[in-house]
């Protein structure tokens, strides 16, 4: 008999939902969280179910994780985000032993065993310097969308050297550098360097075990991935849809379903 499970990651910036069919990804959705995590979780779940052509009645279980997990009242259970990130990372890349998650608020590095269990982790929740928020701040002053940052940054000729890793100071520094004639591409490449330094610092403190996967919204930024690869000196694995990793992990852990690899994209 086919088992369907719903995994929800109520993130601080985006709500993500996945429908898993016997441990394989069947459908997913992602929407901005807005101010209301419960409402966003409900909406994104309905959207994922619709894409999967299923209804609530077909689900064997619903599992929530993430910043706003506690508000998801229709979930059967909630799970810690670190466990879900580990399980999700391992689902995408069974060879991965480190997952770096670059979310909008937090950056985490998680070490895991061959079964996708988190064995140790380190998290930066005190400073926006290594988080996706930094990208949002810079995108705003450059009047561009976050999605366009990666491709544009690849055109950089001489990346701006920021004297600071602070997102707030980098913003004013970027304004000054633009006034001096620095190109947006060079600014963005500089931001990637500043962020990568913070993220790499975190990862190295944890201890980098290969292979290393990167998830979260930040992983969609190809410029950031390339800079981080240089900084860490390893090739990074990035799933096709890096934002849904924790939601997948939640769905998988919720059913204890042995999983199979559904998508593997070596970036």
């Amino acid at each position: 008999m086919t088992t369907y499970t719903l995994g929800i990651d109520a993130g601080s910036s985006f709500a993500k939902a996945v429908v898993m069919q016997d441990g394989k990804l069947r459908a997913f959705a992602a929407i901005p969280s807005g101010g209301n995590y419960a409402e966003a979780a409900r909406k994104v779940s309905m959207e994922a179910l619709e894409k999967a052509a299923l209804s609530n009645a077909d689900l064997s279980t619903t599992v929530a994780t993430g910043y706003g997990a506690a508000t998801v009242d229709f979930a059967d259970r909630t799970l810690p985000d670190i466990s879900c990130h580990a399980a999700g990372g391992c689902h995408f890349f069974p060879s991965a032993r480190t997952v770096i998650d670059i979310g909008s608020q937090f950056c985490r590095a998680i070490k895991m065993d061959g079964d996708g269990r988190a064995t140790n982790f380190i998290m930066n929740e005190k400073c926006a310097g290594g988080s996706g928020k930094f990208l949002q701040v810079i995108a705003r002053i450059l009047h561009m969308s976050v999605e366009d940052i990666g491709p544009l940054s690849m055109e950089a000729k001489s990346p701006v050297e920021f004297t600071t890793g602070c997102a707030v100071f980098a913003e004013s520094e970027a304004v000054s550098r633009i006034a001096e004639g620095a190109s947006p591409a060079d600014i963005l490449a500089g931001v990637h360097k500043a962020m990568s330094a913070k993220i790499a610092n975190l990862t190295i403190r944890l201890g980098l075990a290969r292979d290393c996967a990167v998830t979260g919204g930040g992983a969609k930024d190809i410029g950031l991935i390339r800079t981080l690869e240089t900084e860490l000196g390893v090739e990074l694995l990035v799933p096709e849809e890096p934002r849904i990793s924790a939601a997948i992990g939640a769905a998988l852990l919720g059913t204890n379903q042995p999983w199979t690899v559904t998508t593997v994209t070596h970036s």
Binding site: G35, Q105, K126, C127, A128, K133, F134, V137, C166, A167, V168
Partner: peptide
């Protein structure tokens, strides 16, 4: 609770709300 300016700004806005 937040020390980081970026996060404190968000915190202030949500506490205001």
């Amino acid at each position: 609770g937040n020390m980081c300016t970026v996060f404190a700004e968000q915190e202030v806005i949500s506490q205001l709300a």
